[in-house]
Design a protein around this nucleic acid. Sequence first.
DNA 1: CGAGAGAGTCAACACCGTGTTGATACCTCG
DNA 2: CGAGGTATCAACACGGTGTTGACTCTCTCG
Lengths: 210, 210
Amino acid sequence: MAPRGRRTARVSGDERQDAILTTAEALLGERSFDDVSIEELARGAGISRPTFYFYFSSKDEMLLALLDRVISEVEHRVSELPRNFESDPAGAWTRSIGMFVEVFVAHRGVATAAIAARARNDEVRALWSKSMQSWVDFSSDVIASEQARGAAPDGIDAHDLAVSLNLMNERVITAVLNREIPAIAESHALDVLSTIWIRSIYGSVNPGRS
Amino acid sequence: MAPRGRRTARVSGDERQDAILTTAEALLGERSFDDVSIEELARGAGISRPTFYFYFSSKDEMLLALLDRVISEVEHRVSELPRNFESDPAGAWTRSIGMFVEVFVAHRGVATAAIAARARNDEVRALWSKSMQSWVDFSSDVIASEQARGAAPDGIDAHDLAVSLNLMNERVITAVLNREIPAIAESHALDVLSTIWIRSIYGSVNPGRS
DNA sequence: CGAGAGAGTCAACACCGTGTTGATACCTCG
DNA sequence: CGAGGTATCAACACGGTGTTGACTCTCTCG
């Protein structure tokens, strides 16, 4: 039943929860997780600090909710990645890595906060690890099949290679997004990463089309 | 003047400072920086919490002192790295990366704490960045000269490549040391990293000796 | 309609870790 | 001996997290 004429005095619980998460994404865009107090999150959502605890049992719990949304997006997008690497390996890898970059750019604040929280919070670590594994499994499968069909040389375990390259992506992209030193120019990032992936997977500068 | 017969009731300031740093390295080996309180550091060094502030103005300041020692070691060891890449490129790179790995392994606690603190503390960030740059400059110089002499293909900026590969090392090694998932086996790490470096620098599986 | 039941809210409180202050003891050197 | 730097710590102030208990609003059902 929609509220008529006179609006309901109180906004619904779900809206409040969303308001908290929205406030959080916004604040994490400008400041670090530690520098955002629960007080601010609550004020941003129009409630008092204790009421925040009605919605989330802790600040980390809220980060988990934020991260959960991102993970769903990641798993969905990874499952839709094309697997036709035979015809244009370089292009296919570049598109895959590009998607990785896009997700990080779109959720920079959450990603940075999660990476920091990972060190102290088991649940955050588990959730982050789940998302990294989506990418690792995808790339590991593709590398293994490229090795199987003879397009990529053996001499390195497909899974080890996939893990290392994905960790490189994570680290290089956060360095770029947080304007660290040393880092590379944002405009080069995708190009540089793709080049490294392709050279180290195929052992050559120019993997042949077939 | 050495204390005679009767020992000085009070241990010297320098010893106390060292005791704090030693306690810190030990505790950081088992717990995260945030989980180590100043109270514990002080107790470990046989002093009270306020006295800790006589030696360091904050916990971060102490981390800085810890990191400073590591940086000196890094700069020293980097400057001693051989540069004879012409005769045995693969071996030379493996030895260089091996040294990177060694430093991380030897100072695992400090490295992990510094990486976490980097996000919130400017001085830690600056110091860490200085140490990364030692490695980046070294590798960037070597890559550029390999490209110049025609042993390594162009098509990627030497500095961008050096930054990315060094960031990969940082991330992969911390993942290994902290037993993250996904990560690779500690015993493979050096081998996997070297392979990726060599393939992506030389654009081939087997850079020729000359 | 009116008495629960739930959801939602918050003032006040307890706690813990950081950083500060001021008083005091010790040690050395003129 | 006594002045001045070195070293020490009890007690305090502060800020952020998480908890409690009482209150209000709204919806439902006899």
